[in-house]
Design a binder for these strands. Structure first.
Lengths: 131, 131
DNA sequence: GGACACTAGATGCATGCGCATTCAATGTCC
DNA sequence: GGACATTGAATGCGCATGCATCTAGTGTCC
């Protein structure tokens, strides 16, 4: 039953890689652009999906964040002027979130930092379990 | 320059795997054994290294937790009776952390939950970047 | 059309975290 | 040996998170 050992080893490796990258990412994004990882992720999603949908819902769906965390993150981004909320006329409970031009700018800048950190701290193939 | 795309894709995959497993782990450990992931990790480390060293230091070293977070986590574990602190005579600033028998029991029980969650939510080879 | 279930998002609350600081114990240098 | 830097751990503080709850807008069923 060595599969258990393999499982644990795999998880350990995953944990290590994740924490290594995440901590550096968090720090770098914060220091250089005043963004948390989650906030950057949100901007990133918004850049990717330019087509409009019921954003809050969608964002929460494919991000790992809880609905409440997302709501507050968007509030922060809005307060910083990187994003704006708009009512959805079709369903007035829904809220559209869109990038402002400043948000786009910030994302573009942050993207470089993001890539740089990945390049230096994410060893590709690092958590491959095959020998 | 497709290496950038590969890098990002790899990171995404890592993020997804991590969050998938971590969220289930956190929930399962909490519900079944009243332990957070970090707390379980600490017990796990203690089981592994039975030889005595300056624990707080060591633990913080190979765990991703900050020193303060570790200090509090150990405090919680001590309060729950799973762990005990002992002064280090050689260097009276140091603190040894050791498992109590109850801590060992709890860990043994939690280990099963841990493995079960890994087995069902950690797909081995999931974040292999080769095609 | 009025009562009731449901859904989208916001918010109160408790908690765990990291950073900076503090405090005690050790080293070090003259 | 006494002043000063350094180290191990604890703690004050602010913040992001998840859970539960609340509010408001939509269906739905009679």
């Amino acid at each position: 039953m060595t599969s258990q050992a393999a499982l644990i080893e795999h998880w350990r490796s995953l944990l290590t890689s994740y924490n290594e990258v995440a901590s550096h990412l968090e720090r770098a994004l914060q220091e250089t652009h005043g963004l948390s990882m989650s906030e950057f992720e949100i901007l990133d999603r918004l850049v990717a999906q330019q087509c409009e949908k019921r954003r809050m819902q969608d964002l929460a769906a494919d991000m790992y964040l809880s609905q409440s965390a997302l709501s507050r993150a968007v509030a922060r981004l809005e307060k910083s002027g990187l994003v704006s909320r708009a009512l959805c006329e079709a369903d007035r409970r829904g809220v559209f979130v869109t990038l402002t031009s400043e948000g786009l700018q910030r994302h573009t800048a942050a993207r470089e930092t993001h890539l740089a950190v990945l390049a230096s701290h994410l060893q590709v193939g690092g958590q491959d379990t095959r020998r």
